[in-house]
Amino acid sequence: QSYDYDEGSETWPFFVLAVLCVVLVPLTLMQAYEIIAAKDEDSSSQSSPLEKLSEKYTGDQVKRFRAKFAPKKSKLLARRNLVIIAGWCMVAFLINKIGSNGAIKDAATLLFDPYALLDISASSTDREIRSAYRKLSVKFHPDKLSKDLSADERTVLEEQYVMITKAYKALTDEITRENYLRYGHPDGPQATSHGIALPKFLVDSSASTLMVLGYIALLGFILPFFVSRWWSKTQSFTKKGIHARSASYFADRLFNFKPSQVVTTGLILNWLSHAAEFKLLYPDLTQETFESLLYDHINRRHSGELETAKLRIVAKTHALLFGLLDIATTFRNLEISTVAIDTFKSIVQATPLTSHSQILQLPNVDAKRFEEGSVDDIRTLGKLFTFEDEKIGKILGIEDETKLRETLSVAANIPHLKLLRAEFTVPGESVVTPLSTPHISVKVLVRSAKHKFFTPNKIPDELYKEEQDFDSLRDPFASLSNQPALPRTFAPHFPAKRSGCWCALVVLQKDGKVIQTPMLVDRLSFANLNKDFDKRTVKDLEKEFNPEEWEIGTIKIPFSQPAPDQKGDYYFRVIVKSTEYFGADLDFTLPMMVRE
Amino acid sequence: LQYNPNSKLLGLPHSSEDVTMNISQINKLTQDLVAETNANFTPQPHAESTAMIKKMFENGLKQTQQQKLADALKSINLAIEMAQRKRTTWEAFAVQLQELQFMLKNRVDLCLVQGRFMDALQDLDFLQNTGLNSSDVFIRKTDALIKLKQYEQARAECERGLSLDPTNVKLKALLIENTRRLAEYNG
């Protein structure tokens, strides 16, 4: 009954050390990995002139907002790091406490290690053991000891000799070896002491009630609190990061959607304004208020004292729109999916969706002048770039020279996708065989609206080639990660800095419905945008066009189901829609020729 | 839920638009039933309504032959309005649907000829929404979209039409025409 406690604090340091290591080692590794990954992320993403211009055109209201709500940069001083540092100090302290603690040391010597005693390696053969024993016993044999040793030295050496003999026996003699292997000591089971790895005062005396209370608090309150908080958090947010109530509202809207409803960005904004996130942020504001704030943002109207509220809810629409897009594609509703992405653009660019959105998304454009002025109805950047610069200035109503230059630079750096080649491919096969797993491989050219147009067949076939080595066959999507991440978007009115993506939708042409959730394209090289290759200056394509200089982007869309089992041609429509800019989309039909 | 005995209508204040819509459907059905004189009615379409609509419609067709297109459009609109109002809610849906689609197809051609492209486009949308995916719907829709300068959508419609009917010559011609316009549109 009478447990002996760990008075000499021999065991509890090991216990605490073990617990600390179990917590610290993974935490440290995770933190280290994160820091390295963050560095790598910065290096891989490409910069673009739009970034600086976006900074320049960002209003101070948005700048203040970003400063206030930006994720805290100082990763190093983050709480987790402090915990790690404190933890390792504790470990160091414990280790030197263990090292300096005598009681532990002599307990350690109790451990019997024949190999150490004969100072041979644990894997030595019998011969080596024998020779080592012979050498040592000659040295330590009592008769061999020199006379002038003092009594206690002599006893130590004799003891040493006894140990060596024991060690030798433990390794050679059957019985003692049996003992050693079974009990760790040749003389059979040693006296082992069982105790509680806690100091006495913690268990016995007054502190014991404290301990009991501590346990009750831990198990009764603290643990349930954390578990319930964690559980309510996971319950209330879907994996797409939107609130469960918002997701169920969107699903309800989609489920009860009537063909007699007209899908416009207004309808999507109305749905967004019902989001639970907004209600959680500003419980006192009503849904109508949220809706009017979203309209204020799109029409670049100031919302007075609700300005911060407006910016906060606009920042939230990012996750909400992706959530809505996911649900819309799950319901296979193409119209709502495409209008949701159009709403995304109009929120990012704070420009309403009209037929002139491509022009109005540019900075410094005087909308009134432009609407009246545009004689031959310019609706695209490509069309805009057919005029000379000063003419463009007049059309857009920009007098100031530098502003015009900046506007033209933004217009020239907005990425447009040009389809070069698209096909269904099955890795390792030349055709799509029945019931195979094809994916859609699209070769695009990221070009500026300013560039001279050239037909895809101007680019020789070898530039399309992709290495057909083993791992690209095993995982065709791996090669996509070689492309740089997208640079920051020119979105001076959007509350947060963003780099956006293209959403790739796949639609079955037979019934015009979406067949899978969108694939987000966030890695493409924008190197071509740095080229001048202006359509107004390049005269004859033959001489000035050199295919090698142009980078070809690759988009790969996984196909959510196996190819049909019957041979034949199945038509799909692929829509690659940007969430950032107007006019940067692709929309083409792609046949899947299933052959034996 | 409140029931108003003299107007014989259901009402539910502050209900969501879905519920309001369902209630108005029930009210409409009740009104038609109350108004019905013939005790043992059947889903067979009323002969006299069909006759009236037919007469109105034939009149429109005659005017089309006489090249009086505006009047033709008017009488076809009248025929459609007649169908919308006269038909009761229990007359066979298939009959009502076919009748409406048939009249709309003619109305589309009249609108296109008279340059009312938006009207034609919306009628074509309606025909597609109600499951009419024949090539000539795609041809007309592509044509209307091109006239309305919506080249991106025109291309999508045309390509979809070609997916369903790859050998259609008119759609191919429209695709080429639209691609040319798109190139010009994009400068």
Partner: peptide, 22 residues
């Protein structure tokens, strides 16, 4: 039938919406 009528009524609404948008 009533849903069909509602969809037919929507034609007018859609005309206005798209006229504005385009």
């Amino acid at each position: 039938n009533q849903a069909l009528k509602r969809r037919y009524q929507a034609i007018l609404l859609r005309k206005d919406v798209f006229a504005v948008q385009w």
